[in-house]
Structures are given as structure tokens and as C-alpha cells.
Design a protein around this nucleic acid. Structure first.
Length: 517
DNA sequence: CCCCCCCC
């Protein structure tokens, strides 16, 4: 009932009693099991019902005597499981299941598979089977089914690095574990629990974070077979996902996900429909800026009957289709279709900017230094053909600003950016580049007028230095116009930063030499 | 007890 009681309450509410697993997990939605009396089946979201079992009720701990009597243990919430109890029993639905992984370590060859469990109280936990336990349970465990699982002990600290579930523990199944399928598909147990992130949020996430995404699939590549470094062949597909945040991200399906789900998505895309994909437990990567990929324990669901999916579909049909998207994976479309990725080193190596037309390239890198003496210039505020002149004006001494470009003079001027930056990318090579008004404002984070006031009117050197410092060690995507220019008989290739996008990543300070300013 | 997701 709890899911129905709270349906359509997509409330952001971290449980104050439980520390968040990571800063990105603040929303949880659950898809309930079959219809429980009202509301369409499988279509409800529930606010996380997360009673705190950090201090398990006494009844859950004192299972010892009961177990010794041989009486079957009572079902307890997953959230009450802990390593200090004896016999336990849970009732939960399997929400994900990996394939069997074979490996060789110091003890010789081994194998394992894992599956994830969710119970009626929204408690979740990962279960692991090794060696012969794999054979014992692999076929029995099916995603979507409800099981009664009982055992003694077997609780270990969760490997948070690989396991996004909201539980401090994991279960290791062993010979003492009893797993039985529940014939009644308990509708009080949600089918899935999602914690959807917007694609735009990926920009501020670290590589390695596991997330749930809900996106429109706008393209699907064929399956590629490639050889891994260890000589084992693997398959991949590359998809583009978009959502209402106006961002898109390149998403890679690995291995088995290429087959069933990848195939189905390709057919749907080819037939002109825009399937909605749920990717549960996708891994954030930083390839081409930001990327997402499947891992073994990922779950894919196509056109799942969710209100969120339906509104995304409607939005995409009515406006999304024609909207401009910001790609978090450079090379897709973020900086325009003609986007050409280059390194700073290539500007020189390939003699860019030496031909008739400018070269337009995109470079990922960081600001290495900013020239602080002249970061802006007084610009003409006069209108010429309906737009601001913005050329440089000169104070002619009588309080008037004279523009040599449009010939007008005015009582005021406007300070506009002409930021002279050194930009550096992973090749370590540095180039000089100039950012004008719009790009300068993105880099500095303040209008040029404000920075001018801080430095020249307030004369707050500390604040000024602080602001400049903030712009460093920050990853950006620079769209550069590269063109040679002749000035005073000297011809040089100049780079103008025509567009800049913050990637939301700080570069390690050590990777940049200590620059001036 | 494995293992980050493989490649560009």
C-alpha cells in the first residue's frame, strides 16, 4: 500500500537519518509491483519510504533463540539486515542479475554472479554467489520474481565503489542459504526503484559514479565487435540519449546488452520512433567530455510504462525533436555539426589558420593563465545599424569617449572582455587565445563591467586575484577560430575563443605547471 | 573470492 499512498509525489527528500551514499543520490522513485487496487499497474512513483533501521528494532536482532528452537525465522526488512544477527529471512524482488563471470586468481579459477534485491519497504541489497553456489542458484534467480531468502550470516560490508544500492551491506549466498520462489507476485514490492538524474547533471559528476537515466534514444549504431587488450572479443553499440534538460550524452552498450535491447532499440529508431530508455546503474565516464556505459549489473528497459517516460516522449515529439541540444560528449553535436576535435599541439603541427578561411576547431583543455593587466577595453555604446558598435573607444580628455570605428562619441562607455588566455590541454602544449565578451564572461563568471569595477574602482586586488584564480584548473571545451593575421608586418596565427563550455571538472593542479596570474 | 566496464 505504501507505494500507492504516496504516488505521484516525486519529492526530493534525502533521509536525514541515513547518510547519502553519494552526493548525486537524492531522489528515488519506485515502480510498484502489480496493481494494488487503484492506479494503473506499474505506473506509480513512490516517495522513498525509508524508515531508519540503523538501530534495528530489538525483535530483528534476537533471532537466536528462535533459530535454536528450529522455528522458521520471520521475514525482516532488508534494511534491518546486519552482520551481527544470526538467522534471517527476507522477502524481496530481484531487480537485476548479472551473467556468470569466470575469473582466475591466486586460488585458481572461480566464477560468480550477483543479483540485486528490493523489498516492500524499499530496502535494497546486492547478493553474490561464488563457485558451486552459482550453479545452485543461477537458473532459479530471475529478474522480476519475488523470493523468500533465508540464511545465517553472510553479510559483508558493501563495496560502495561498485555497488550503488542504498545499503551498507551485501549478502554472500552459501550452502546454508535457502532461496524459494514466491508464487504470489507480491504487489507491495516495487518492480524497480529509480534515482533518475538529468543528463545535464552528468557534467558535474565524476567518472565512476553509477546513475539511473531516462532518455530518448535518438540514434543507435550497429553492433561492433572489438578485441580487448587481453585478447577477448567483446561487442559494443553506441547510442545517443537526450532528455528534457536539453542535453545529450553518448551511451555505450557492452556485451550482452547489444543483443536483445540494442537490437530492439535499433529497430525502433530505424522505424522512426523514438524509444524511451531506462538505464539503471549506468556508469559515468569522461570519454569525449562525458559518456555513459553499461556495466554488468546495469538494467535496461525500453518504453517502460512510467509517467516520466510518457512526459519525456510527449515533450520530445512536441518540442524536443526540433530543439538544439548541448552534447556532453564532444564530437556528437555540442559545438555544431562541423565540430572538429583537435589538440593544442595540432594547431602548430597541422599549420592551422594558414589557409584562406579560418579553421574552426574544438579543444578540450584548461585555462593556464590569464593576462590581468588588460582584461577588458572600453567599448563604444553607440548603435550602428541597430547593433552596438562595441569597438574600442578613447577617452579624449573632456569626458567624452571617441570611437574611431563608427566615428561617434558618447558620454559613457562599456567595458567589454578581451581576455588574453593561455590554454593548455592534455598534450601539455600551451597556446595563446583571446576570449571576447561572451566567452570571457563564461570563463570569469562575471560581466566585464563588474570585474573592471572590482579591480579599478574598488581596487580590491585580493578579490580580483581570487576571481582570476577561480577560472584556472577548470576543464573547458573551447571552440576556437584559428586564423593568421598580419599586424605591423608580422604575421601570426591567432586563436579566438568564440565559444566556451565549462565541463564542470577541475584538473589536478599538478597537471598544470604553475603559471603566472 | 570479483571488479568498474573494455575501444575510440
Amino acid at each position: 500500500m505504501s507505494a500507492q499512498n504516496t504516488m505521484h509525489t516525486n519529492v526530493v527528500q534525502p533521509n536525514p537519518q541515513q547518510p547519502l551514499l553519494n552526493p548525486y543520490q537524492n531522489q528515488r522513485f519506485a515502480v510498484p509491483g502489480t496493481a494494488g487496487g487503484f492506479g494503473p499497474p506499474d505506473q506509480s512513483y513512490g516517495r522513498p519510504a525509508q524508515p531508519s533501521y540503523q538501530q534495528p528494532p530489538a525483535a530483528y536482532i534476537n533471532t537466536g533463540p528462535v533459530a535454536k528452537n528450529g522455528a522458521p525465522p520471520r521475514v525482516i526488512p532488508i534494511a534491518a539486515l546486519n552482520p551481527f544477527q544470526g538467522t534471517w529471512k527476507i522477502k524481496a524482488r530481484v531487480t537485476a542479475k548479472t551473467h556468470v563471470k569466470h575469473y582466475i586468481n591466486g586460488q585458481g579459477p572461480g566464477k560468480l554472479f550477483t543479483f540485486d534485491l528490493l523489498d516492500a519497504h524499499r530496502g535494497e541489497i546486492r547478493a553474490k554467489c561464488f563457485k558451486e553456489v552459482v550453479d545452485q542458484f543461477y537458473d532459479l534467480i530471475e529478474v522480476g520474481k519475488v523470493y523468500l531468502i533465508s540464511s545465517r550470516g553472510g553479510l559483508k560490508p558493501a563495496q560502495k565503489q561498485y555497488n550503488p544500492l542504498n545499503n551498507d551491506y551485501e549478502i554472500s549466498l552459501d550452502a546454508r542459504t535457502c532461496v524459494e520462489v514466491c508464487s504470489d507476485d507480491d504487489s507491495s514490492i516495487p518492480r524497480q526503484q529509480f534515482n533518475f538524474r538529468k543528463i545535464s547533471e552528468l557534467a558535474n559528476m565524476d567518472k565512476g559514479v553509477l546513475i539511473d537515466l531516462l532518455g530518448v534514444v535518438t540514434s543507435v549504431s550497429p553492433t561492433f565487435t572489438l578485441m580487448r587488450k587481453n585478447g577477448v572479443e567483446t561487442q559494443k553499440r553506441v547510442l545517443e540519449l537526450k532528455d528534457m534538460s536539453g542535453c545529450s550524452v553518448e551511451t555505450t552498450f557492452w556485451g550482452n546488452f547489444c543483443d536483445a535491447e540494442g537490437q530492439q532499440l535499433q529497430l525502433l529508431c530505424d522505424s522512426g520512433s523514438n524509444p524511451i530508455l531506462v538505464l539503471k546503474s549506468g556508469l559515468v565516464g569522461d570519454f569525449k567530455g562525458r559518456s555513459v556505459s553499461t556495466i554488468n549489473s546495469s538494467v535496461l528497459q525500453i518504453n517502460l510504462d512510467l509517467p516520466e517516460a510518457e512526459s519525456l516522449r510527449q515533450w520530445y515529439i512536441t518540442e524536443g525533436k526540433d530543439a538544439a541540444f548541448t552534447s556532453l560528449s564532444v564530437g556528437m553535436s555540442s559545438m555544431g555539426r562541423t565540430d572538429v576535435r583537435k589538440t593544442v599541439a595540432q594547431i602548430k603541427d597541422e599549420d592551422l589558420g594558414r589557409s584562406e578561411k579560418p579553421d574552426w576547431i574544438t579543444v578540450m583543455g584548461a585555462i593556464w593563465s590569464i593576462k590581468t593587466e588588460t582584461f577588458c577595453y572600453p567599448a563604444c555604446t553607440a548603435e550602428v545599424n541597430g547593433t552596438r558598435c562595441t569597438k574600442k573607444v578613447i577617452n579624449n580628455g573632456d569626458g567624452m569617449w571617441q570611437c574611431d570605428s563608427c566615428g561617434q562619441s558618447s558620454q559613457n562607455c562599456e567595458y567589454r572582455y578581451m581576455l588574453q588566455c593561455h590554454i593548455q590541454d592534455h598534450t601539455g602544449i600551451i597556446t595563446f587565445a583571446t576570449a571576447f565578451q561572451e566567452a570571457g564572461e563564461v570563463i570569469i563568471g562575471l560581466p566585464a563591467q563588474d570585474l573592471f569595477r572590482i579591480k579599478h574602482e574598488d581596487q580590491d586586488e585580493i578579490k580580483f586575484a581570487d576571481i582570476i584564480q577561480q577560472a584556472r584548473y577548470q576543464q573547458y571545451l573551447f571552440k576556437l577560430r584559428v586564423k593568421e593575421e598580419t599586424y605591423n608586418d608580422e604575421t601570426r596565427v591567432k586563436c579566438n575563443i568564440v565559444k566556451v563550455q565549462k565541463l564542470g571538472r577541475h584538473v589536478k593542479r599538478e597537471s598544470l605547471s604553475s603559471g603566472s596570474n
